[in-house]
Amino acid sequence: MVAAPKKKPEDLITKQIIIRLTKSDHYELKKLCVKKEITINNFVRDLIKNAINRKSDYNE
């Protein structure tokens, strides 16, 4: 396994995404994240990265 290259701060951008959830959905998401021992932010970030990778797979 090869370590991912470090991103330079100037290559990163910050975007704010607002996600609206019901109380029950938020509770389920929080439970899932606690079970996987990750934060909700990291969970959403991983979802976005996976979606980008899948899109690039389809374009090949």
Rank of each mutant, 00 (worst) to 15 (best):
K8H: 06
D57Q: 13
Y58A: 03
T39L: 01
I48Q: 13
R54L: 15
T14S: 05
V34L: 09
N41R: 12
S56L: 15
R20P: 01
C33S: 01
K35W: 09
K49Y: 12
S24L: 12
N41H: 14
V2F: 03
T14C: 06
T22L: 08
N50W: 04
N53R: 15
L21D: 07
P9S: 04
K55Y: 12
M1D: 06
S56E: 14
R45K: 14
E28I: 04
N41K: 10
T22M: 05
K6H: 01
E60K: 13
R20E: 01
A51K: 15
E28V: 03
V44N: 06
I52N: 11
Y27T: 04
F43V: 02
D46R: 15
T39G: 02
N41S: 14
T14I: 07
I13F: 10
C33Q: 08
K23R: 14
I48P: 06
C33A: 05
E60M: 01
I38E: 06
L29M: 13
P9R: 09
N50F: 10
L32E: 13
L21K: 07
F43P: 02
D46S: 07
Q16M: 03
V2T: 04
S24F: 11
F43S: 00
K35L: 14
T22V: 02
S56T: 03
L12R: 11
K7Y: 07
I38K: 11
K30Q: 14
A3K: 12
D57E: 14
K49R: 14
I40R: 04
A3N: 05
A51N: 12
V44G: 05
K55T: 00
V34M: 12
C33W: 15
N59T: 00
S56P: 03
D11L: 09
Y27A: 07
A3E: 08
V2P: 01
L32Y: 09
K15Y: 12
N50K: 15
N50Q: 15
K6P: 00
K35F: 13
N42A: 07
T39F: 09
I18D: 07
N59H: 11
K49Q: 10
T14R: 13
L12C: 02
S24Q: 15
D46T: 05
I18V: 06
K36C: 02
I17A: 04
D46W: 14
I40F: 10
D11S: 07
D25T: 04
H26E: 13
I18S: 07
K31Y: 05
D11G: 03
H26M: 11
D46M: 15
A3Q: 09
I13V: 00
K23Q: 14
P9W: 03
S24M: 12
N42I: 02
Y58F: 03
K8L: 07
S56C: 08
T39S: 13
E10A: 06
H26R: 13
K8F: 05
V34G: 00
I48C: 10
L12S: 00
A3T: 05
V2K: 10
V34C: 03
I52F: 12
Y27V: 02
S24D: 14
Q16V: 07
Y27G: 01
K8S: 06
K35P: 00
K8G: 02
E37R: 15
P9M: 05
N41D: 08
Y27Q: 13
I48K: 11
K23P: 02
